[in-house]
Amino acid sequence: MVVTIKDVAKKANVAPSTVSRVIANSPRISEKTKKRVRKIMDELGYHPNVNARSLANQTTQAIGLIMPSSANKSFQNPFFPEVMRGISSYAHIKDYSLYMNTGETEQEIFEGVVKMVQGKRVDGIVVLYSRMNDLVIQYLIEQQFPFVLIGKPHHSSEEITYIDNDNYMAGREVTEYLISLGHEHIAFIGGSPDLMVTKERLAGFREAIKLANLRLPDEYVFYMDFLREGGQLAVERLMSYEQPPTAIVVTDDLMAMGVLSTLSEKGYHVPDDVSVVSFNNVIFSEIACPPLTSVDVRIFQLGYEAVKSLIEKIEMPEQSSRNIVVPYKIIKRQSCKQMNDDQLCL
């Protein structure tokens, strides 16, 4: 026998309209009543008809997710499955489904977003990256469509709700850590230069180098894809220099895995010959050889806070934009070491 909304209302001793408002999480209903009605829904095994509710409310009950590149490329990096785990965790609580958009090029990604918005396929969008002069962000602002950004906006930050770490300070702090270990020749391997996360971490890195009165050759800064191959290619070049670095800041753990494997292949030992620090603290950081010193950016929390903020914007359109800074923590492991006297004399 199918349980109806009237069955729930009868047992809860409320009107069917009250049950409907509880399902929609209306602020007009007290938390005490919501809790009681939801308990009865669970006891009776009642499941709201999402499609009918969406038609009645003129909503889709769906969230769009915009990846920075193709799914094949993005999902090679553990950052994205983990951030999506945070997103889906809160979306599930609020009964929202997820609609993912990817593309091989920036233009394809943009066209997919336009279809999402114009086709009314989603109620709001989470953009899982922040890029300089991004067509997607400009379009969403123009359309006044609800969206939240994971990352610091390139512009119009007062108009955008965004979730991020303090990547400038994180970049500066890990570099100062290496400097405190006696390193003077420190290289930087980042992602694409148009990504705000690269820009912010590099700015912090440069500031630490400057404050320590160290020299930073232009060839010590690399921009690569956030893939294992990106780290491998950068190390091939770095270790061929007359003065190779004694330490490397890598802005992504997957890239760092490529750094570690290539250093090993070339006969360098980490951390005896080269120290390595990285970002994200994904699961394989602690089982790498050696275990990676990495900045824990709390990826799950970034996703959770992003979709939570988006659903609040959807349900309360008048809410002003805000930014949430998720704290980071440097997890020190065995990939960094104090410079010895022989190395300091080089």
Rank of each mutant, 00 (worst) to 15 (best):
G45A: 05
A91D: 02
L65T: 05
E159G: 03
L214E: 00
I287W: 07
I179P: 03
V126D: 13
P327N: 09
I150P: 04
I330T: 07
Q58T: 11
K32A: 00
L344N: 15
R237N: 06
E106N: 12
K94I: 10
S264T: 09
L128W: 13
M41K: 05
S97A: 14
Y162K: 03
S17E: 02
S26F: 07
I29D: 04
R28G: 05
F226D: 01
I179E: 01
L260W: 02
T262I: 14
R215S: 10
R121S: 14
A12S: 15
G103Q: 08
A208T: 11
Y220S: 15
E82C: 11
H92C: 08
F205G: 00
V113C: 07
A170W: 11
L292P: 14
G112E: 00
P27R: 06
N167L: 13
V282H: 15
E236V: 06
T293P: 12
K39I: 07
K11N: 00
Y46P: 05
R206Y: 01
V221R: 01
K6I: 09
I314Y: 05
V14P: 11
L233I: 12
E104V: 05
S240V: 04
Y99Q: 00
V113L: 08
R21W: 09
L195T: 06
N340F: 12
N77V: 05
Q319D: 01
T251A: 10
V117S: 01
G190S: 01
H269W: 04
V174A: 01
Y177H: 12
F147V: 13
S294K: 00
P291R: 07
A52I: 08
R85S: 13
P193Y: 08
L195W: 14
S264P: 00
K10R: 07
R206D: 09
Y328G: 10
F188C: 14
N165F: 11
S264H: 12
S192G: 11
I109G: 01
Y162V: 13
F279M: 10
K32H: 05
S309Q: 02
R237K: 15
T198H: 04
K313I: 02
L344A: 12
E158R: 08
T198R: 07
R322V: 03
S275L: 06
V83Q: 04
V122G: 10
V277W: 12
H47P: 06
A306Q: 00
M1Q: 03
K34Y: 07
A52C: 13
M100T: 11
E265T: 12
P290H: 13
N25G: 08
V270L: 06
P317Y: 10
D7W: 00
G231Y: 09
Y96I: 07
Q143F: 03
R215E: 15
A288E: 04
E82R: 04
Y223F: 15
I330N: 04
L302C: 04
D225P: 15
E82Y: 04
D342W: 01
Y129C: 01
L227P: 09
G112H: 02
L55S: 15
H47N: 05
V282L: 14
V325C: 13
E318W: 03
V270D: 10
M67A: 02
E305F: 00
I189H: 02
G204N: 08
I141C: 01
Y162H: 13
Q107Y: 03
T60H: 07
I23Q: 10
P217K: 11
Y162T: 03
A91P: 06
Y96P: 10
A12R: 14
V114W: 03
Q143P: 00
V197C: 00
C289K: 12
K10Y: 00
N49V: 02
M224K: 10
T33D: 01
L260M: 11
T4M: 02
